[in-house]
């Protein structure tokens, strides 16, 4: 039987398999995981005629360098990514948001994301990987998901179970937009913070710390003063919650977050801004803007419509 596979020459910094993640497991301590930037995940799959929830390769900063062996396939990259494709007789600079035909012996080298964090590589077909609780998403903390829950290693192979028969080349014009402010809804412990603390939270600029990953984004800048209690009884968290521990530096919970936490919650990032929040790289500045629940719901609806529109153009 002929096998179709990629050989990983260089794994990249944090390369994992992801899909939309797994639900109904918070109560046993397992977070959603899943692709950090949901819109770019969906677009990547659509560009290679995959089912929208197919497994993709998510990478952060530097991505993998891989060589392909097997029958012709399609692949596509979404995000803001610099990469090249090396064929027998030439090497081209790749463009995001279009699919490419790849033949046996071709190499794809994902050099880096550009002014962003995550990028997505979708391969036209079904990957031969492990699913747990109906998801392949790798959670490196609990070692759950494909690849024994570990990030990619040098020399490992990624096998395909099936190659898509529809290999039409697809393309879309899309530019990832940046937003000025991240919109937040007041948290359940908002009143734990001093008047000055609350004011600083909305008025000052924070810097995204290097200590940020799929679990959380740590911020540095003005210290938010707590005047009630710097601990609460541990309780459930969701992605986007902004906790402020005793040191006054906010931490935003991201897709692989611990499912319970004991620090006061000053706010929660509106769902509409999550995809763009996770793409902000360490060192960049972030500012928060208060939004109410009904506006957050409306804006999310519009964002979803926009995503559907984009997908229907592919």
């Amino acid at each position: 039987m002929s096998k179709n596979y990629f050989n990983i020459i260089r794994p990249g910094v944090n390369s994992t398999f992801q899909d939309k993640g797994r639900d109904h497991l918070y109560h046993i301590g397992i977070p959603f995981s899943g692709a950090m930037d949901n819109r770019n995940f969906l677009i990547a799959n659509k560009l290679v005629n995959n089912n929208l929830n197919s497994a993709v390769i998510e990478f952060a900063y530097q991505g993998p360098h891989m060589k392909y062996f097997g029958k012709k396939i399609n692949l596509a990259i979404s995000g803001d990514v610099i990469f090249s494709i090396k064929k027998k007789d030439n090497e081209i600079q790749g463009n995001c948001y279009q699919s490419y035909k790849i033949e046996s012996g071709d190499e794809i080298n994902i050099i880096s994301t550009n002014k962003s964090v995550y990028g997505y590589l979708a391969i036209g077909g079904d990957l031969d990987i492990k699913y747990q609780w109906n998801s392949c998403s790798i959670n490196t903390k609990a070692n759950i998901g494909a690849n024994d829950g570990k990030k990619f290693k040098e020399g490992q192979k990624i096998y395909l179970k099936k190659i898509n028969s529809n290999q039409d080349i697809k393309k879309i014009n899309y530019v990832n937009t940046k937003i000025e402010n991240i919109r937040v809804i007041k948290g359940t412990n908002f009143n734990y913070f001093s008047e000055d603390g609350k004011k600083l939270f909305y008025d000052s600029e924070f810097t995204i710390s290097k200590l940020s990953d799929r679990m959380g984004m740590r911020l540095e800048g003005s210290k938010i003063e707590n005047i009630v209690n710097t601990n609460i009884k541990s309780e459930g968290l969701i992605k986007g919650v902004i906790q402020v521990p005793a040191d006054g530096n906010p931490i935003i919970m991201l897709s692989d977050h611990g499912t319970v936490g004991g620090y006061p919650k000053i706010g929660v990032v509106a769902s509409v801004d999550y995809d763009r929040l996770v793409q902000m790289s360490p060192g960049s500045k972030i500012k928060f803007k208060e939004i109410n629940l009904s506006d957050a719901e409306t804006l999310f609806k519009l964002y979803e419509m926009e995503t559907k529109n984009l997908l229907s153009q592919i």
């Binding site: 639900d23 918070y26 109560h27 309780e235 459930g236 719901e297 999310f300 979803e304």
Partner: peptide, 22 residues
């Protein structure tokens, strides 16, 4: 509803905003 997180004295119910709302 896509997740329930019981703790000592709280229950967090999270849901898919594409399907339902608060």
């Amino acid at each position: 509803i896509n997740n329930l997180t019981p703790s000592y004295n709280k229950l967090i119910i999270s849901f898919d905003l594409k399907i339902t709302n608060f």
